[in-house]
């Protein structure tokens, strides 16, 4: 950490990180429990991990979850950026507000309603429940958060910048790719990661729109909860957590070494 920080600040951050990770460490610790519950720790064992590796069904579910998250984040980021541009360009304040309100409705709607109405929608459209219905729903509820992440960046961009580019004869495509996008990249990445987060987190919507044997981790966990969560789910979370951490750190340091500005931060 930076030397400019006071010990108090460091302590504050330390406490925040501790709290954020406490439940996760709790889950990880109990994945090594030789007992059956998340209450008392009977002794160390790798039994749950062994069980986990023999479960192909669970592996398929994990892969399903990851694919849905990656694809939905990718597609919703693209559509969301276009949407943010659309809202930004609206000239009338009223159009802007209307678009923005429409955009935010899915963020505020309770998952149950989103799930139920999507279910009706898919039924009317004749879409079979399964991978595609889940993917479509995840894209749909991730778009508004991408817009919300990108829009403030667009607002910060001064119009003169674009005008200048236009005056210099840049085509519209060039303005978009050379001026606007580089400026809003941090927002785009934030949007992508938020979309990823929404997709991993979602349970209620998926629960409604899945079917025909397609399942994601959160739905699976929810149905397991009926008997109390089995600790192989803890083991699974521990592995996923470790894997994500590794990815995050590796990704970060690769981008650092390549001397591209990290996660696309603009340096002033």
């Amino acid at each position: 950490m930076d030397k400019k920080m006071t010990p108090l600040s460091k302590l504050f951050l330390l406490v925040i990180f501790f709290i954020l990770y406490a439940p996760i460490f709790f889950l990880v610790i109990f994945s090594f429990n030789s007992g059956e519950t998340m209450y008392d720790f009977k002794g160390f064992s790798l039994e749950w991990y062994r069980e986990l590796f023999q479960d192909t069904r669970l592996l398929i579910i994990v892969l399903n979850t990851v694919v849905v998250a990656l694809l939905s984040a990718l597609i919703s980021t693209i559509i969301g950026v276009l949407g943010a541009l659309a809202i930004h360009q609206a000239k009338k304040r009223q159009t802007k507000n209307t678009l923005l309100s429409l955009n935010n409705i899915l963020i505020v709607s309770p998952d149950v309603i989103i799930g139920a109405s999507f279910l009706i929608l898919f039924t009317m459209a004749g879409i079979k429940l399964g991978f595609y219905s889940v993917l479509l729903s995840h894209i749909a509820f991730s778009i508004p958060i991408v817009v919300l992440m990108v829009l403030p960046k667009l607002m910060e961009m001064s119009p003169t910048l674009i005008d200048a580019a236009r005056d210099l004869g840049a085509s519209r495509w060039n303005v978009l790719t050379k001026v606007i996008i580089p400026f809003i990249i941090p927002g785009i990445f934030a949007g992508f990661f938020m979309a990823l987060t929404y997709s991993f987190d979602d349970f209620a919507v998926t629960f409604f729109v899945t079917g025909n044997g397609f399942s994601t981790l959160s739905v699976e966990i929810y149905s397991l909860a009926r008997r109390g969560i089995s600790l192989n789910i803890n083991a699974l979370s521990a592995l996923l957590f470790l894997f994500t951490m590794l990815l995050v750190v590796i990704y970060y340091f690769i981008t650092q070494r390549n001397k591209v500005n990290g996660m696309g931060v603009r340096k002033h």
Binding site: I60, V67, L74, T177
Partner: peptide, 23 residues
């Protein structure tokens, strides 16, 4: 911009590989 495109391509590629594995 290039970086963004590359990032998106990597994600798309990873998804394709995963989809293949699942099927």
């Amino acid at each position: 911009m290039n970086k963004l495109v590359r990032f998106f391509l990597i994600i798309a590629l990873a998804s394709a590989v995963l989809l293949f594995t699942i099927s």
